[in-house]
Design a protein around this nucleic acid. Structure first.
Length: 379
DNA sequence: AAACTTTCTTGTGGCTATTCTGCGG
DNA sequence: TCCGCAGAATAGCCACAAGAAAGTT
């Protein structure tokens, strides 16, 4: 490890001016709403997205600690930062030690209560009482919660680990049950204090603002959406592979928080509009490297489910990524770089067809056709 | 600057023709 | 090694509402 959290924080220039809430232009923005293309503080997020059921469907994510302008999708516990995919890539690509502890970050929709917001940003074990106590004492106890944000990622044996195993960077303990994180969702990045401050502020206003009767059973609405803990070792062992069975999410309910991850259908419908994903993929420097990306036979791999059934993408991609880049052509650093890039790219890959506009799909399905082609409708 | 109108571009699914792949003679 | 066949995979076509962009008031 070349960059400790402290070091990372020194590198990080926290700039409140850049993070001003787009709505009130006053508070520090902590969330990003893709649908609104807006940076928002907790309060404005609440105000805006409790307005009606349609708005409440907007998927929000933590704001990237690095660029302050994009939705974060990765939490790096080594740097204690939440990062968007671009920044995550930039940072960890250049890092000489690519084994920072990172994990996908989950967004949310709906109109979360303070309790749920606590859970979302990783303060679920803090509790209301402690939150107020912390407030009364000026918030200096924030560091007292620091252990809540520590999560030692488990050593597990997955394909990715095996790919990188030749550099003997890992000491595998096959079959070892990974320790569960103290606070699975702790991912508040560099703005812990601001998050706590705004949570406290929200809590004071909660009786007036609460758009749901969730506090009767705080957290219940989204805890039920979380993977069972006893599933975690298995999920971990597959390294969040894209071809993993998606989590079965309940149907969307306007006021229920929906956890979004990159690996399930809900994520692609709620978290990141396909247009944005496409745009991101086009702009993201992660993607274009001819040596890795121009496998002709792979070019249609994301066209449909059929493609998925044709081969095991994990096995194929892993082996082909290494085969196409002949090992003897690369030194170990380049190889690590290529592999880490492959891993990053795989995180965002989807194999099922993505529908950008459901309304167009509905219309297309109901349109008259002649031999499969759309037919003119004569009025 | 905001509201409104017009023009241009995009995305959607079922079918078919074409291309690719594997196998046996 | 070449050829033919069968089956699988892929590309392209179609119309038009929705969305985006540009222009006007």
């Amino acid at each position: 490890m070349t960059s400790s959290p402290k070091h990372a924080q020194e590198d990080q220039t926290i700039s409140p001016q850049k993070r001003l809430c787009d709505y009130c232009s006053n508070a520090t923005a902590l969330l990003y709403c893709r649908a609104d293309s807006a940076k928002l503080c907790f309060l404005c997020d609440r105000v805006i997205h409790s307005g009606n059921q349609l708005f409440s469907k907007h998927a929000r994510s933590p704001l990237c600690d690095a660029c302050d302008s994009s939705p974060a999708s990765v939490f790096c516990s080594t740097e204690s930062s939440v990062l968007c995919q671009n920044c995550d890539w930039e940072r960890h690509r250049l890092s000489l030690s690519p084994v920072h502890n990172r994990r996908p970050l989950e967004g949310f929709t709906g109109c979360p209560s303070v309790s749920e917001l606590q859970a979302i940003v990783g303060f679920e074990e803090v509790g209301h009482k402690t939150l107020f106590l912390s407030n009364e004492s000026g918030g200096d106890e924030i560091d007292g919660f620091s252990d809540l944000f520590v999560w030692d990622p488990p050593f597990v044996v997955g394909l990715d680990d095996l790919i990188g195993s030749t550099d003997s960077a890992h000491d595998f303990e096959a079959m070892r049950v990974p320790p569960l994180p103290k606070n699975r969702n702790a991912a508040c990045g560099q703005y812990k204090e601001e998050i706590l401050n705004q949570l406290r502020h929200l809590m004071k206003l909660e009786p007036n603002l609460n758009c749901e009767n969730v506090d009767a059973e705080p957290l219940a609405s989204f805890q039920s959406l979380m993977p069972q803990q006893n599933e975690q070792p298995e999920r971990m062992s597959i390294g969040f592979a894209d071809n993993a069975e998606p989590i079965a999410f309940p149907a969307f309910e306007a006021n229920a928080i929906q956890w979004c991850t990159d690996r399930d259908e809900a994520a692609n419908q709620l978290c990141l509009p396909n247009s944005l994903k496409r745009k991101y993929l086009e702009e993201n420097p992660v993607v274009p490297d001819k040596r890795l990306d121009t496998g002709g036979s792979v070019s249609h791999a994301n066209d449909g489910i059929e493609a998925q059934s044709r081969y095991d993408p994990t096995k194929y991609e892993a082996s082909s990524a290494l085969q196409r880049v002949a090992p003897h052509d690369l030194n170990s650093q380049e190889r690590d770089f290529a592999i880490s890039r492959y891993k990053e790219k795989r995180k965002t890959r989807r194999y099922d067809k993505q529908i950008r506009y459901e309304s167009r799909k509905v219309r297309a399905e109901s349109r008259t056709r002649i031999k499969g082609r759309f037919a003119k409708i004569h009025h």
